[in-house]
Design a protein around this nucleic acid. Structure first.
Lengths: 151, 151
DNA sequence: ACAAAATTAATGTATTTACATTTAATGTAC
DNA sequence: GTACATTAAATGTAAATACATTAATTTTGT
């Protein structure tokens, strides 16, 4: 469905305005789909984002602020996300001896197993995007980078 | 800055995965900028979205569920957003005589004036995107539509 | 006309978020 | 070494969000 129909707006002031609205709308749409998929595993998209970051660094531990730097939402409160995941035993938290302010976070086996279950589900979800070619996906990524670059 | 640097991830499983992350990241980035611009006018991006919809329909009133259908975030609680804007006298709410379940929402002069102040600010903000051409913006909008279409 | 279903909006609530502040530890300048 | 600034993480809080439910009406089927 076109953005015109999705938000029932026939005219836009410019191609740029339509794109801005379409970007935000599509991102919301994707996040909502993720929310729906993750719900039955009692994870929010943000918590899932943290787990993926931890797996990406395994077997090295990673500090809370390094997780924040890698999050898709830079304003997310990583301390509390880590708390939630700790309560579910999906990660462990150890104070860092080299810098006692910092804590080392490491994904647990339970966390790895949960991600293994989710992998094919998220893979399937990403197939939504196969409606465009890989070249078009790369082109879009480049243009998104360029938009952010200019600010 | 490239998405690789922004989220410090060097490798992606596919062009599609990078695009998905880039879309969500860029949307968060844009929303945060909006939040920042609107803050001094005591509006959230969602409230601003409602006001724009109301202006788009002026001088016709519009019902709460029709506003919802036009929102960028389909899960937003329009009743409460309307409440907030009513408290600021940026809109008026009148029960609809033709259907007593429904309420007619209309932007007030004060609401129009606030939007007039915001127009050039938001215009400037949209200029961020002039790093790409209008043709590229149209192309991207089309591809975003196609991605959502397939689901 | 009447009961059942559907629609419209509002509300209750638990969780999450935004934002500022706090606590503790480290780094820097003198 | 001591004062001052900086950094890392956690926390307090008010507001917003997700989600289910409710209340009031209208629509539909018979």
């Amino acid at each position: 469905m076109s953005i015109e129909n999705d938000i029932k707006q026939k005219k836009f002031r410019s191609a740029y305005q339509r794109l801005a609205l379409n970007l935000i709308y599509t991102s919301n749409w994707m996040m909502y789909q993720q929310l729906d998929l993750l719900r039955q595993y009692d994870l929010t998209p943000q918590q899932y984002n943290v787990l993926r970051i931890l797996r990406g660094h395994f077997p090295e531990p990673i500090k809370v602020n390094a997780i924040s730097e890698r999050m898709l939402d830079k304003t997310s409160n990583t301390s509390r996300l880590v708390d939630k995941l700790l309560a579910k035993e999906l990660l462990e938290r150890n104070s860092c001896s080299a810098d006692r302010r910092a804590v080392d976070i490491l994904i647990t086996d339970k966390g790895q197993e949960l991600l293994k279950i989710l992998d094919p589900i998220i893979d399937d979800w990403e197939k939504t995007m196969h409606a465009i070619t890989p070249e078009q996906a790369d082109e879009m990524s480049l243009l998104l980078d360029r938009i952010r670059e200019s600010a």
